[in-house]
Every structure is written in structure tokens, then in C-alpha cells.
Amino acid sequence: MTILVYQLLLGFFVSSIISFFSYIYHLLTKSGSLAVITVGTVVCAFGSWQTWVLLILLFGSSGLISILKKPIAISNEETLIAKDQQRDGWQILANGLPAIVSLILFYFTENQLFLIGYVSAIAGATADTWASEIGIVSRHTPRSILSFKPIAPGLSGGISSLGTFASLVGSGLIAGAFWLLSSLSITQTVLFFWIPLICGFANSLIDSILGAAFQVKYRCSICGQITERTEHHQLPTLKLSGLSWLTNDWVNFISGCLTVLLSWLLVYY
């Protein structure tokens, strides 16, 4: 119990520092900062230092990419995506909850299946974030993952060669870091490197498929632009396709859950 309290305090302190600077640099909203503190505290309390490092890699790399991307002008991005570039609490929790649940299950069972689920979820969140943040600056027009028709940059369901490569590298960063930090033997390489790598990359593909097929999209009655926002040109938009309740946050959450389940299946079989 003493160790758990110590880890809770340590996690709260470190994650508070991270969330503070992220808020100062306009990477997080107030609710996003609180969510980062919550997620960081829980991971530090129920996980090892390796799992904590993976979370820092996710937040750190995502924040660095956002900062480096700011000078690049991206036309229409802010008017297409459902939310601004600052991540709010729901976005953080949607990406973090599947990982947290798997980590807590590992804490109480010590079954490595759940640890791999956690790593895979973090790899998936990193892959999806890198794909979105880096893919948006591609010089080539993205295409729908389902129809392969060109779509506006920033819309869910679109993929590009740059974004796809970025998602693979992001997933590899987490999988490789955990494998190196854990000093695993050769016999454990498949479980602790390849499965998180594959599942993390699969997360970004699942996210794009759900975004293209089921995420709600709207059309502006003024300019005809397809958007994820309920308002465009300060007027309500018209629903075009998708499920009304399935926003990008829900897509991220469902993708994370499916990624964890996929990793469990791969480990089990």
C-alpha cells in the first residue's frame, strides 16, 4: 500500500508538470490537462517505470510534432475536423482508457497478455496520432481508405503514403522502446515487439476504416464542403452520412478497444 501511494504521488507530480507545459504551449485544453494528469497518475500507480516511459513517449512525441507543425499552413484543416488542435479531456480519455484497463488487469493478474495489450494500445494511439499529425502535411491529396477516392485533407477515413509510413514508425517507436527497456530474451521478441508493432499499426487502419464508414459527417449549406463540424460559416451543417453519435472521439475509443482485443487474441493463439 505504501508503494502504491508513493507511485500515485510521483505520477501526479510528473504528469502535472507535463500537462502544465502542454497547456502553456496550447497543446491541451484545461480538461485535456486534467485528463493527462489522471491518466499519468493511474499508469504510474499500476504500472512499472517502463509503462510510464511509453506514456511519456506518446505525449512527448505527439506534442513535439504539433509544435513543429504549427508554422506550416494547412488550408481548411480547422474548418473540417470536429475539434481544434488543442486536445481536450475526451480525446485524451478516448485514447487512454483501453490501455489503462489492460494495465490494471495486468496489475491484478500478472498475466503478460494484459501487459502486451497495454503496450499495443499505446502503440496504436501513437500510430494514429502520428498518422494524423504528419499525414496532414503531405503534398499528395489523401484518399478514402474504402473507396480510394480523393478527399479533403483532415477528414477522417483518409490515408496517404506519408501518414501510413508515419503510423508504422510511431508504432515501431513504442514497440521498440518497450522491448529495449524490458531487456527481453530472444524467445519473447515476438510477443513484446512484433505483436505491439502489428497491433499499433492496425489501430490506425481500423481508425480510418471506422472513420470512413461510420463516423458522422456533415455538409455545409453555404459552400458545400464536407466537414466533421456541426457548424460551418457560422451556420448549422446538414448531416451527410454516418451515425449521429459516432464522433472522432468514439472512433478512437473503439479502435483502441479493438486493438487491445486483437493483441490478446494474437498472444492467446
Score class of each variant (00 low, 15 high):
Phe178Gly: 04
Ser182Asp: 15
Ala152Asn: 12
Ser138Val: 05
Gly154Cys: 04
Ile159Arg: 00
Ser138Ile: 03
Ala131Phe: 08
Pro142Asn: 11
Ser144Asp: 09
Leu155Phe: 09
Ile134Ala: 02
Ser138Phe: 06
Pro153Phe: 01
Ile151Trp: 02
Leu184Ile: 08
Ala127Asn: 09
Ser147Phe: 08
Ser144Leu: 09
Trp130Met: 10
Phe148Ile: 10
Ala125Asn: 00
Leu180Ala: 14
Pro153Cys: 12
Ser167Lys: 09
Leu181Gly: 14
Ile145Lys: 04
Ser161Cys: 03
Leu146Asp: 04
Ala121Leu: 11
Gly158Gln: 08
Gly163Phe: 05
Leu168Gln: 10
Leu162Gln: 09
Gly124Arg: 06
Phe165Ser: 15
Trp130Gly: 00
Ala175Tyr: 07
Leu162Ile: 14
Asp128Cys: 11
Leu173His: 10
Ser147Leu: 08
Phe148Met: 14
Ser147Ile: 07
Thr126Arg: 04
Ser183Trp: 07
Ala121Pro: 00
Val137Asp: 03
Ser171Thr: 13
Gly163Val: 01
Ser183Gly: 11
Gln188Tyr: 10
Thr164Trp: 02
Leu155Asp: 09
Gly157Gln: 02
Gly157Pro: 06
Ile186Phe: 14
Ser147Cys: 06
Thr129Asp: 03
Ile122Glu: 05
Gly154His: 03
Leu173Pro: 03
Ser171Gly: 15
Ala125Gly: 12
Ile174Met: 08
His140Trp: 07
Ala166Ser: 15
Leu162His: 05
Ala166Met: 10
Thr141Ile: 14
Gly157Leu: 03
Ser156Gln: 05
Gly176Val: 11
Leu180Arg: 06
Ile136Met: 07
Ile186Cys: 04
Ala166Trp: 10
Ile122Lys: 01
Ile151Arg: 04
Leu168Phe: 15
Glu133Met: 06
Ile145Glu: 09
Trp130Cys: 01
Glu133Ser: 07
Leu181Met: 15
Gly170Glu: 10
Ser160Pro: 05
Leu162Thr: 09
Thr141Val: 12
Val169Glu: 04
Leu168His: 10
Gln188Cys: 03
Thr129Ile: 03
Ser156His: 09
Thr164Leu: 05
Glu133Pro: 06
Gly170Gln: 13
Ser132Asn: 12
Ala127His: 02
Leu162Lys: 06
Ala177Gln: 01
Ala125Trp: 01
Arg143Trp: 06
Leu191Ser: 15
Ala127Cys: 14
Asp128Met: 12
Ser161Ala: 14
